[in-house]
Write a protein that binds this DNA or RNA. Structure first.
Lengths: 254, 254
DNA sequence: TAGTGGTCTAGACCACTTG
DNA sequence: AAGTGGTCTAGACCACTAA
């Protein structure tokens, strides 16, 4: 018996037509079925190919646009951009483990600490939560070629996430949260700065006499806007790289 | 005589209904007319208020969502996020001058160089353009409290931009390009790294014995996808800060 | 169950590009 | 003039939330 779409996609994440079409065209661009510099089929053409309405095609194209795959031009068409040169999207919300997997970098995670504590005072202030809030404090060192180049310090609210097994912390927190707990991650605010190294950095990381370190801080929220995580990720200067695709939001008003 | 919308908006940038509605609601959020944590009126309600169709309201809300103003929740409504804490959008494509204006920081720009040259070899390779390409080389130092903390090196293709008066370079290149030349900036790819300081950095900037510097490189394209600018912006470590709003694109496929 | 947002449609008109 | 993308509509059905 043939399963209906709904049955087949039970528990899946996105089953909308426009998202499916987005994924198909994305693959075709990564495949080079559609080559950089060329035009995609017109919206009317895609409407016929996929047998959907034009607005549905347009939603799919909007996703491609936002993710830097195409540029649209009125009267002309949708031009495929050169996506090969920046084929790993470090931008957006992506965890360390996901990055490693997508880039196949030989690396290793060492779990240094995983315990429940009161939230550190300065973090409570930053997040504007009570100082009596309890959090899982998870500290992990990321090794590359036997050197610790990244130190991740995560604080996860126990009110949202009850338990964190060591095995999960050694693998991927986001995988655990999304796939095992079934929570949906929504958005985050990130801040990048460069700061003097701390005594802890010197103790836990393989710093070659560096005096500074790149620090990224973020507060991560679920889709229902509940705050659940504060992250501080400390990167050795020579191993830090951040790539972003940015679209002009229209001329600013001066 | 009353002017029609089209006449009134001659040469303006966006006159679509959904964009107007976006701007109005954005102001209302910044005004605190809609307060953080509260719900916006429902889509049906907004449909009546603005006398437009629901899809038009939804386009406006999508803009608010992407810019971090709201979070939508099916069955619930659109929740206004706390936007005050991060009220300057460093993310996206924003020029130095625009940032200064929006933050009212007392600062000064010194034009060090503005001349037409052949494109430097390493940049030609990076951009995959011919080494015989001619560019405006614009080098500017950004002073803050009498210290040079940022060094901007811009290379603009003469094939797209014929002339750059010194006065414009001292003000804002983006303002000149968009408002005086009428070109439309589309998108850019940015890369952030930390690198050892060069002899030029030492000569032109007020470095206090720092050994490293934050470097952001980007290639900027027009809306019609033409490449027109390569930028290298060098920031003193203690003056660098980058803030980003990121939305999870849905669980990654492991 | 009523109200919310999420998706989708079929059609319309407009602005822009190219021949 | 023909084809492209940009905007907008009115209506439909679905999935989720809260009472």
């Amino acid at each position: 018996m043939v399963k209906s779409d709904k049955e087949r996609n039970k528990g899946m994440d996105k089953v909308s037509k426009f998202h499916e079409i987005f994924l198909e065209i994305e693959s075709a661009i990564l495949n080079q079925t559609y080559k950089s510099g060329e035009l995609l089929p017109s919206e009317n053409e895609l409407t016929k190919q996929y047998n959907v309405s034009r607005e549905t095609i347009r939603k799919a194209l909007t996703l491609l646009l936002e993710n830097g795959y195409i540029q649209k031009k009125q009267g002309k068409g949708s031009i495929v951009l050169d996506v090969k040169r920046f084929n790993f999207p470090i931008s957006g919300l992506t965890s360390y483990k996901e990055l490693q997997d997508s880039q196949n970098i030989g690396s290793q995670t060492i779990l240094i600490e995983n315990k429940i504590t009161l939230i550190p005072k300065h973090i409570a202030e930053f997040l504007k939560v009570s100082e009596t809030t309890k959090v899982h404090t998870v500290i992990r060192a990321r090794k590359l070629n036997d050197e610790v180049v990244i130190l991740d310090k995560d604080y996860l609210l126990t009110s949202v996430i009850e338990e964190i097994p060591d095995e999960e912390a050694e693998n991927s927190l986001y995988y655990y949260i999304e796939h095992k707990l079934g929570l949906k991650i929504g958005y985050a605010r990130k801040e990048f700065t460069v700061e003097p190294v701390t005594e802890e950095d010197r103790r836990l990381m393989s710093l070659h006499g560096d005096h500074h370190i790149v620090v990224t801080r973020s507060d991560v929220h679920l889709e229902d806007t509940r705050l659940f995580q504060y992250t501080e990720s400390r990167h050795r200067l020579d191993k830090f790289r951040f790539v972003d695709f940015a679209r002009r939001r229209g001329p600013q008003t001066y």
